[in-house]
C-alpha cells in the first residue's frame, strides 16, 4: 500500500469504518511509514478534540413549543390513552371513534408490545435515564437486578465482540417490570429488554421494524428477549447472534 492509497483510508480507520482486512493492510502500511503514522496521530487527535468539545446546538424552547403546538393533541397521552379513548367512545366524534376502532383492531398483543418496547427505548434515550446502574462490568450489573425483578436477566459482556456493555436499568413494558441491559455500538444505544414468560418454549430470533427502529426478539429458557436499536438490521442480528452464542457458552 502506498501513502496515496492509505491517505483516505486513515480516516476510515479512525472512524471505525474499515473491515478487518483493510484495517490490517492500513495498519501494516502505517507500521512502516513515519509520515502516515504522524498523519494518523493528527487525525485521531483532532477527531478526539472534536468529540470532546460540545459542538451541538440545543433547539430553543420556543421552537420546540411551536412544533409541538403544530401537532394535533400535542400533549403526550399515557400508554393507556388508546383504551381510555375507546371507553369514552361515545364522547368523541364519530370520525375519531372510527380511527380508534381501527387502531385497537390493528394493535394485536404482539404489535402493542413492540410499540411499548420502542417507546421504552425512546424514553431511555430522552430522559437522561439510560441506566440505573452504570458499569461495564457484568459482575456489577447482574447482581444489581437481584431483588428488583422476579428473574435474574443474563448480563453478558460483549465488549470484546464489538458491543460495549454500559449498564442496566429497570423498565416497564406491558405494565410489568422488565430488565433492560444497555449496550453501545459506536454511538448507538442498544437496549436489550428481558422479561419472564410462562411459556418455556424456544422461539428463534426474528427482526421487525417499527418507526425506524429495528427490534430483534427471541425466546429462550423461559425468558423473552427484545433487542432494540437504530443500528442496521444486520448489525442487530450480529448482536443477537453473539449474545445467544455467549449465553450457550456461559451455560456450559
Amino acid at each position: 500500500m502506498t501513502c496515496d492509497e492509505a491517505e483516505i483510508l486513515l480516516h476510515a480507520l479512525v472512524d471505525g469504518e474499515l473491515d478487518a482486512g483493510h484495517a490490517r493492510e492500513v495498519e501494516a502500511h502505517i507500521a512502516t511509514c513515519p509520515r502516515c503514522t504522524a498523519e494518523l496521530a493528527a487525525i485521531s487527535e483532532m477527531h478526539q478534540a472534536i468529540a470532546d468539545a460540545d459542538l451541538r446546538y440545543t433547539a430553543p424552547v420556543a421552537l420546540r413549543r411551536r412544533i409541538e403546538a403544530a401537532l394535533p393533541q400535542a400533549q403526550a397521552p399515557s400508554r393507556r390513552a388508546v383504551l381510555r379513548g375507546f371507553a369514552m367512545g361515545s364522547a368523541v366524534s364519530a370520525i375519531a371513534a372510527t380511527g380508534l376502532v381501527a387502531i385497537v383492531l390493528r394493535n394485536d398483543d404482539e404489535s402493542r408490545i413492540t410499540s411499548e418496547i420502542v417507546s421504552a427505548h425512546l424514553r431511555s434515550l430522552q430522559a437522561g435515564h439510560l441506566t440505573d446502574v452504570l458499569s461495564t462490568d457484568q459482575h456489577t450489573v447482574k447482581p444489581w437486578f437481584n431483588g428488583r425483578l422476579d428473574v435474574a436477566p443474563p448480563v453478558i459482556d460483549l465488549t470484546a465482540l464489538g458491543f460495549t456493555l454500559i449498564g442496566g436499568r429497570l423498565d416497564y413494558v406491558d405494565a410489568r417490570p422488565v430488565g433492560a441491559i444497555v449496550y453501545r455500538r459506536r454511538l448507538h444505544v442498544i437496549n436489550l429488554f428481558v422479561a419472564q414468560t410462562a411459556n418455556s418454549e424456544t422461539r428463534a430470533a426474528r427482526t421487525e421494524t417499527f418507526q425506524g427502529f429495528n427490534i430483534r426478539s427471541w425466546s429462550e429458557g423461559g425468558l423473552n428477549y427484545w433487542a432494540v436499536s437504530d443500528i442496521a438490521a444486520d448489525e442487530l442480528t450480529e448482536f443477537s447472534d453473539k449474545f445467544q452464542t455467549a449465553m450457550k457458552t456461559s451455560a456450559g
Partner: peptide
C-alpha cells in the same frame, strides 16, 4: 388533514421524531 388530525399518529410521530429535535436543529445551524 384527516391524516394529520389522527392523534394516535401524532403521538407516534412525537415519540419518534421529537427526540431528534436538537440533532435536526444542530444540522440546520
Amino acid at each position: 388533514n384527516a391524516a394529520n388530525d389522527d392523534p394516535e399518529k401524532a403521538r407516534r410521530f412525537r415519540d419518534a421524531a421529537l427526540p431528534h429535535l436538537d440533532d435536526v436543529y444542530t444540522l440546520a445551524r
